[in-house]
Design a protein around this nucleic acid. Sequence first.
DNA 1: GTTAGGG
DNA 2: CCCTAAC
Length: 672
Amino acid sequence: MNKTSADLNCIELLATVAGQVLQAKSLREENAETQSASASETKNPSGRVSSCQVNLPSVRSHQVFVPGKSLFEDVSKLENRQDSNNMQETFGKDEEKVAVSNFLKGTELPTNYMCLQNAMNELVPDPSEGNCNREEESTSEVNILTQDSSAHTSLPKSSNPGHLGSLTHFNSLDESNSFSGRNLFKGGTCVTLLPDNIPQPLCFSSGKEAPTHVHKQSHSLCSEQPLETHLDFSQDLLRLQAKDDDDNFSDLVVPATTVPVGHLMPVIENTQLMQSQQIIKLHKEEASVTKGEMKGIVNDGVIGGDLHCLQHFSSQQPQGRKRRRTFKPSKVSIDTYKPSSLNPLDLDAKDTSVGSSPTTIEGSRRSRKRKSNEIHDCFPVKVNITSFRVPELSINLPETATVASLKRAVMEAAVNLLGGGLHVRVLHHGKKVHDENSTLIQMGIACKDRLDSLAFMLEPSGVSNTSMNIGESIFAYPKVKTQHGACYPVFTTGDDLEGSRRKTLNGLSSTDAETDASNNTEAQEKEDVVSNVGECAKLGQCAPCDSPTPATAALILHPHADVGQQTYVSFSGKRRTRRPFTVLEVEALVQAVELLGTGRWREVKQQVFSHARHRTYVDLKDKWKTLVHTARIAPHQRRGEPVPQELLDRVLQAHTYWALQLVKQQEDIGDI
DNA sequence: GTTAGGG
DNA sequence: CCCTAAC
């Protein structure tokens, strides 16, 4: 599991370690005392640096180019149409909404929305200068920045708390949807950019222009083609191999073809740089480290055996060269800084780095003691992957789709694309290095003055054309085309009972729709609550949506995707804005429960609240709970908008009824 | 992914 | 409304 996340982690660390390796020589000569805080922890008793410091790379996610115009137009409709309420719901604050508007117009979304968090904010260029520069974008492939020693020493844990990307986890953005289950980014681990304030980063590109601050190119949202999101993945990347549970290696090679994908990688929260730092100790003469080994080191250290960049370390050993140590897991250790906090990711990192081979660190420590005079074999290099790109993707969305739907679509596409794994490719002087058994010294890339000759690239692997796969899950639901051309899910409740219940609910909906048109908010609420019921009634009359041509790999989302829990996520990732239930909603809820019973909240959500995107079935359940409580307490003890006593009576009545039903059901089971 | 229940 | 255990 988590192959993808493993891949990403691997790549991240790969970049980091590779950079460290490259920098080893110079750093080794640096005063060990100037090592950042992490170094102190890696000093052996003699005070010498026995390991190199590796920052978990803050790999910046590739940019999402939301196409532009048409998307803008379409989503603009979302803003202006009735769903504006939902937009408000989604984004909560006004400024957030503004931000979304900007996004729709081609500006970077607020980072914390598209899973990009604050760390990116300052990197976001002026929208006016970043719009749609596809050419610029095209030059931004996987770039690995190698910090020089000055940068290295200037990165104490407190110096760049918000800049240097580090791994962290974000749970608030996990929408419990399909992609979250994939754990693409393993708890939010993501790619971020190197900050501008990193002293003279050495940028390694694919050998083209070697942009120094590639990340600056990567923020604009390009809008050129309607309803297309472009993720540009580099054509060449490092190769990685994924190892499954059975130790089978699967080569993950995939041409970076145009694939429908989305990008939406969360960006690292940079506030816990040191917590996420890891120490990688290379007890090896650096010059003989092969590129493949570099990858393996990273891999084993971080992924803990789940992913291997190397075929086998032993098989990578240069022939005719005596190796005192190989980079087998037992001989390469990665010490993770153990923060005082309990950052899940940190724990994760530690667990994954050492958990799978508990003897690794032990062996390493023993080795360190035994060969304390070999500490100079370690050379720290700092590398950050600043960006990588994903091939373009095309996502078609109904105009009624929410931004959240777009986000999911993009994420799902990205997951589908990246699910096959990533490849890491090493480039030397812009050329792909195929002989991974070559040592760094043989390649001449161990020399300090040639660091800029090395580049790493990431590319998606697995399938050359994942287009057809992208939307499969989304297409799983039967859909109908509404009069507006939008696709809606078909209710599949089949039995007559369900049908009659639905019929009743529809009746309620219609009645309500006719009785309350004075209050816009209320009307909107009503619309949200019952509109899908109306749609439901029309289902049988509607022709199915045309399935997208597989070749176009179009994604069609529909509101059904919002039915799930927590599809509405607070913009800030914090507590959602309180949205008290209206009387209308309460009435709809009561009637639904009367018909469906308690404990069927998902159905209630689907049938009555599916368009009320801010109401999850958990919300409905909670509301019912509070309704029951409210009905039981004295009227003067009640707070908030008064609920008609008639409704409260029905609440208690239904509550009692279904409780009895449950008891009877259990008794029946007991009798059997 | 849903449901149930405590906070 | 959040969180999480349990399923």
